[in-house]
């Protein structure tokens, strides 16, 4: 579903991505772990289009998206969530998701018909709100949500666009234990139908969700395999326990 092929990126003399290849099949959840500064964020940027890779390719569902811009990749079916919550604060919860759905359903250069009355969009938004557990809060402004609710909305915005693939950048960031557990359950439900790349520090989440794991250190994938196999690998162990590069 998502294929990363021999991706390279450097800033001057600093190589932040070195020959990275990851392949994630349909229905798979792949986790990416590594210490801070390992190049996870740079890799996410290259997948989502914020940065252009120096060489290599990113394929989504067989389509080469390496040179596409951020919005074109979303149109091609890439969904993502941000590590730092990024929503539309002056929009209601429902409208945040309705506009995400709108982006993928027809042109938005429409000037007359009231968008809030488009039933197709509202249906998707309500269904998504239900899915992420925000159906009681649809009319609340995003700026009035709690942190935990914002994380859910963040996911809801990505889901409302009906992506083919989901890029999750530390979805558990800042969540308490119960909230994390609930989100893990939610993601576990999604996993079968929606392939995802999960960047996460929370080991619980990784062991419960990931089918496979890549360990990124100093811009290189130093180990990969099932969570259990990677747990046993000596270099990787140091990395995901946050003890720096092995």
């Amino acid at each position: 579903m998502l294929e990363i092929q021999n991706l390279n990126k450097s800033f001057g003399a600093l190589a932040v991505s070195q020959d990275i290849s990851i392949e994630i099949g349909a229905g798979q959840c792949h986790a990416l772990i590594g210490p801070n500064g390992a190049g996870k964020t740079t890799l996410i940027h290259q997948i989502s289009g914020v940065l252009q890779a120096d060489s290599g390719a990113v394929l989504l569902d067989g389509q080469d998206i390496t040179r596409l811009s951020v919005w074109q990749r979303v149109q091609a079916g890439l969904g993502r969530t941000f590590q730092l919550t990024s929503v539309l604060p002056s929009f209601s919860v429902l409208e945040n998701m309705a506009i995400a759905a709108q982006a993928k359903r027809g042109s938005s250069m429409r000037f007359f018909r009231a968008a809030a009355q488009e039933r197709a969009l509202n249906t998707i938004a309500h269904a998504t709100a239900e899915r992420v557990g925000l159906s009681a809060r649809t009319d609340v402004l995003a700026s009035d949500l709690s942190h935990g609710e914002l994380r859910l909305l963040e996911l809801g915005i990505a889901l409302a666009a009906k992506p083919k693939f989901l890029l999750l950048d530390e979805p558990m960031a800042g969540l308490g234990r119960t909230e994390s557990a609930a989100l893990i359950t939610l993601l576990a439900d999604l996993r079968g139908s929606l392939p995802m790349l999960l960047v996460e520090h929370d080991m619980d989440a990784i062991f419960q969700l990931a089918d496979s794991v890549s360990v990124l250190v100093d811009g290189k994938v130093i180990a990969r395999g099932t969570p259990d196999a990677v747990r046993a690998a000596p270099g990787a162990r140091a990395a995901y326990l946050g003890e720096g590069a092995a």
Binding site: L88, F91, A100, S107, S108, A115
Partner: peptide, 29 residues
């Protein structure tokens, strides 16, 4: 008035609120 409530106006407000998010929703802001 119509334009501000239509799809177009909604995207415009989204770009005002948070241009990065609007872009990542798939809009050529």
């Amino acid at each position: 008035h119509r334009l501000s409530r239509a799809r177009f106006g909604r995207v415009l407000r989204a770009a005002r609120d948070n241009p990065q998010r609007a872009e990542v929703m798939g809009f050529a802001v």
